[in-house]
Amino acid sequence: MSRRRLRGPRHGLRLARALLGSQYATMLEYRAEIALWALSGVLPLIMLAVWSQAGVTAADGLDAGQLDRYFVAAFLVRQFTVVWVTYSFEEDQLHGRLSPWLLQPLQPLWRYVAAHVAEQATRLPFVLLFVGVIALVHPAALWLPSPERLLLGVLATWLAFAVNFLLQSVITMGCFWTERASALDRLLFIPYLFLSGISAPLETFPEGVRRLALATPFPYLLHFPARVLAGESVDLLGGFGALLGWAALLLPLVLGLWRLGVRRYGAMGA
């Protein structure tokens, strides 16, 4: 720990560049996979199709244009907050790749962060392509966000990604205790699917359920950044505060579990 601190920020920067560069090269190899993966995030657009016809959202204070913008923004936010750390970590651990990384003077979780960032960079052109398709099929659904909303939206999306990453990392640490942590990850996805706002804007929820949802991190992972990006009126302070709060809560939990887990870790077959 102390040795790394002596090396200073220049070393950190070089490390980050090397990690991101190598991960980006790996991800480019899988660009066809990533294109399909981006395509598999169509859920918000399917839900937009149903909601736009349902004609019930006016009662919840959302007009057709707002609905369009919300779901397109939700689609974009989802694209850049996808987290799959549990699956790669589980595989790396089962195949014994984790062991040499533990010997290196770098917290192995950084590798996964770099992989996710590199994957998002690879995904970017495909997402732009989809936006182009939306522009052709349903141009009314697109809008030009104001510069400050764009900036805040990107920031909220990044924070949402960070919180989502930490949330999944808690589950991932289960890999040290069980061989099937990815099954638990499937369970985590279910409340995300129904409470994050990817299936329905939170405005359409009954009051009680909405309050329950807002007590979980899920709406901040999608609903909040999407509304910021869509230019809707949002409680910026509350939203960013909640994201930072969840991050502050989850980070020590992940690091603590990591420390306990590594102590238990005996490599595969040991």
Partner: peptide
């Protein structure tokens, strides 16, 4: 069970006002 409960809930949202 979670999936069915969630789908049921989202479907019910379409019938809150209509």
């Amino acid at each position: 069970a979670g999936n069915l409960a969630g789908s049921w809930f989202v479907l019910s949202l379409f019938f809150r006002h209509g």
